[in-house]
């Protein structure tokens, strides 16, 4: 036999995508430049699979691409009208479960929830709004925590634990009562050792964690997703990890 090494491969939307053992479907897709919509997944952290936006059909069964290990000969469908319709419904539910008032949000234009909705061509939130009562915590000198906009992606939880080694954030409650909590006796961000230079201060996909005094430095209309789709931005991993805060 020759020295030919056959790499293992899965098929995504008819395209052969090679993978190495241990990679998830999402890892393999990102490496091969195949876009699968995602929101709570960030390749820098352990996958969680909680937003379900990366739902794909694997041999006819729906699974989250970010948590499903790739296995030889998997046939994956991702870019289908049915899955995009499911994804849009998920995004719509995220919109009505929080208080996402884009015109009044500093993160508008840089928000991945909004960008995912643009990508999925969401024209309205469709469902009845919950308008849940949520708190704004402005106790920290450099950072706002606005729970109205939290989508429970747990990226700040993961970043604070895995990168910053601080465990500033956690998730508490169950079901619709699930909410982000702050690791201080007072429950206030100002009473933690959270710092503006922490990774957890940079990873929020929405405007739930906002660095103070940045505001509208970059005007609406010139922001990340005003002209670029989330698919393009999320496929540039080198750029997205650059810290935006000096």
């Amino acid at each position: 036999m020759g020295a030919l090494v056959m790499s293992k491969a899965i098929t995504i939307d008819g395209k052969s995508v090679s993978f190495i053992d241990g990679q998830t479907i999402m890892d393999a897709a990102l490496a091969a430049g195949v876009y699968i919509p995602h929101l709570c997944h960030n390749p820098e952290f352990e996958p969680h699979g909680n937003c379900k936006l990366c739902i794909v059909s694997v041999n006819g069964r729906n699974m989250t691409a970010c948590t499903m290990p790739a296995a030889e000969d998997m046939v994956v469908a991702s870019d289908t009208p049915e899955l995009d319709s499911d994804r849009q419904a998920l995004v719509q539910m995220l919109f009505v479960e929080g208080n996402h008032i884009c015109p009044a949000c500093e993160a508008s234009g840089n928000c991945q929830l909004q960008a995912a909705a643009y990508y999925l061509k969401m024209l309205s939130p469709h469902f009845m709004h919950f308008y849940p009562p949520r708190e704004v915590d402005a106790s920290h000198p450099d950072i706002f925590l606005d729970l109205n906009r939290c989508i429970l992606c747990e990226l700040c939880v993961r970043a604070s634990r895995e990168v910053d080694g601080k465990n500033v954030f956690g998730i508490s409650g169950r079901g619709i009562g699930t909410h982000l909590v702050v690791n201080a006796a007072s429950g206030r961000l100002g009473d933690t050792n959270f710092a503006v230079t922490d990774k957890a201060a940079q990873v929020c996909p929405t405007g739930a964690i906002l660095i103070k005094r940045q505001g509208y430095k970059i005007p609406i209309g010139q922001r990340t997703f005003d002209h670029k789709k989330i698919s393009e931005v999320q496929m540039e991993p080198a750029k997205r990890t650059e810290p935006e805060h000096e």
Binding site: N99, I101, P103, A104, Y131, R134
Partner: peptide
């Protein structure tokens, strides 16, 4: 969505 006036909803 209710928009800016909906800021009073809570």
């Amino acid at each position: 969505t209710g928009g800016v006036p909906a800021l009073r909803n809570n």
